[in-house]
C-alpha cells in the first residue's frame, strides 16, 4: 500500500517529463521541419464547407497545438463522464479524484483549444463577421460551452455543504458533461461552420502528416500526464482527509 502511494507520482512525473520533451520536439518540427506555405491552390489549403479554398499561410502551424489540445479536452470530458458513472456504481473515492482532475485539466486544455481556435479562425476566416476574433463558429461555441461546464463542475463542487453532497454533485455533473462531447464533435455538421471537416488537404504533405503524428503523441502525452499528476495530488489529499477523520 505504501509503495503504491510513493511510486505513482514518480511514474506520472516521468510521463510528464516525456510529454514535455515530446511537446518541445513537436514545436521544433512545426517551425523548422514543416514547409512554408507557398501559394494558394493545391498545397496546404483547407476547404471549408463553403467550398472555397483558403490559404492558411503560416497560421496552420497552430494546428499542431490546437489538435492535441482538442483531443485532450475530449478525453477529459469522457473521463469525467465515465468517472461519474463509475462512482455512482462503485462509490470509490478514486473516481471522484478522476472527475476532478479531468475537469481541472479539461479547463486548461479547453482554454488552449479556445485561444488557438479563435486566433486561427480569425486569421483564416474571421474578417467581415460580427466580433472579428470571436465569430460564433459552432465548433468553437460548443467548445466554449464545454469549457464553461468544466468550470461549473469545479465551482459547484466547492459550494456543496457536506462531503456526501459534494461527491454526489460531482458525479452527477460529471455525467451531465457526457452529452456535451457528441455535441462538440457534431457541431461542424450543423449550421454554418468554417471549421474544416477534414484536414486531408493539409495532411497531404508528408512533413505535416509526420509532425501531426508527433504532436498527437507528444503534446497529448504531456497533457494527459497532467491529468495523472493532478489525480495523484487529489488522491493524496483524499487520503490525508481520511487519515484526519480516522
Amino acid at each position: 500500500m505504501k509503495a503504491k502511494t510513493s511510486n505513482a507520482p514518480l511514474i506520472t512525473l516521468a510521463l510528464a517529463a516525456l510529454g514535455l520533451i515530446g511537446a518541445e520536439v513537436t514545436l521544433y518540427l512545426s517551425y523548422f521541419y514543416t514547409p512554408v506555405q507557398i501559394s494558394a491552390g493545391t498545397l496546404y489549403v483547407v476547404t471549408p464547407s463553403s467550398g472555397s479554398t483558403i490559404n492558411l499561410y503560416e497560421s496552420y502551424r497552430i494546428f499542431f497545438i490546437h489538435l492535441p489540445a482538442a483531443y485532450a479536452t475530449a478525453l477529459c470530458c469522457t473521463l469525467a463522464a465515465v468517472g461519474g458513472i463509475a462512482w455512482l456504481l462503485t462509490r470509490k473515492d478514486a473516481w471522484q479524484a478522476l472527475i476532478v482532475s479531468a475537469s481541472e485539466v479539461g479547463l486548461a486544455t479547453g482554454a488552449i483549444v479556445l485561444l488557438t481556435g479563435t486566433f486561427w479562425a480569425d486569421y483564416a476566416w474571421g474578417s467581415g463577421r460580427i466580433g472579428s476574433g470571436w465569430n460564433w463558429e459552432p465548433r468553437l461555441t460548443t467548445m466554449l460551452i464545454l469549457w464553461l461546464a468544466f468550470a461549473a463542475l469545479l465551482v459547484l463542487r466547492r459550494a456543496m455543504d457536506t462531503d456526501k453532497q459534494r461527491a454526489m454533485m460531482t458525479a452527477v455533473y460529471g455525467i451531465l458533461l457526457g452529452p456535451l462531447y457528441p455535441l462538440v464533435s457534431k457541431a461542424i455538421e450543423i449550421g454554418q461552420t468554417s471549421h474544416p471537416k477534414s484536414f486531408s488537404d493539409l495532411l497531404s504533405a508528408p512533413e505535416i502528416a509526420t509532425t501531426k503524428q508527433v504532436a498527437t503523441i507528444g503534446i497529448l502525452l504531456a497533457l494527459v500526464s497532467m491529468v495523472a499528476l493532478r489525480y495523484c495530488w487529489n488522491r493524496l489529499g483524499q487520503r490525508m482527509a481520511q487519515e484526519r477523520a480516522a
Binding site: 505504501k2 507520482p9 495523484c232 493524496l236 489529499g237 490525508m240
Partner: peptide, 10 residues
C-alpha cells in the same frame, strides 16, 4: 507538493 503530501500522510 505531492512529496509534501506524502510526507504529511506518513
Amino acid at each position: 507538493s505531492a512529496r509534501k503530501r506524502i510526507a504529511e500522510l506518513d
